[in-house]
């Protein structure tokens, strides 16, 4: 692993944690990407404008930065995989009430039992999926 990988990882991680801290201490809310998006699209949220503002920042700033950083995303070109991955991700995060930001970053940092258990389970499921899809079936 090159030093850039872990140092930029650490720096970006601190930025992510600071974003969660600002959202918690400023707005009194837990920064969970799936919850913010999910509540907006299923109509269950009352603070729609605030969620839309969060998403505008989350989508907009990276889109602008990408103009000169030109990031590599290596997204698969296989539409079947994208559809299956998207459906599972949306269904799973709403059923389990959280994703990597809500359960992972915000939950683990306050030692929330649900956050810790969910993070262990989705990481194990992810590792098993990559093991099967890459090393057994060879589809990714």
């Amino acid at each position: 692993m090159a030093w850039q990988d872990w140092s930029f990882g650490l720096l970006g991680g601190v930025m992510i944690g600071m974003a969660g801290a600002i959202y918690l201490l400023g707005n009194g809310r837990i920064m969970g990407a799936s919850g913010i998006l999910g509540g907006l699209i299923d109509g269950s949220a009352r603070d729609r404008a605030e969620r839309a503002a969060f998403l505008a920042g989350l989508i907009g700033l990276p889109a602008v930065l990408a103009l000169w950083l030109m990031p590599q995303t290596h997204l698969t070109g296989n539409p079947g995989l994208i559809l299956a991955g998207g459906l599972l991700t949306g269904l799973g995060t709403r059923l389990g009430n959280g994703c990597t930001s809500g359960h992972g970053v915000c939950g683990i940092s306050r030692l929330a039992p649900r956050g810790i258990v969910a993070t262990l389970v989705y990481m194990l499921a992810g590792a098993l999926t990559v093991a099967l899809a890459r090393h057994v079936w060879g589809v990714i």
């Binding site: 991955g85 599972l88 799973g92």
Partner: peptide, 21 residues
């Protein structure tokens, strides 16, 4: 719901490598 949700999400995450954020 928590366990099944995390299992399904993990599978989707592994297939494509994208989580919601």
């Amino acid at each position: 719901s928590l366990i099944l949700g995390a299992l399904l999400f993990g599978a989707g995450w592994g297939l494509v490598g994208l989580c919601p954020g």
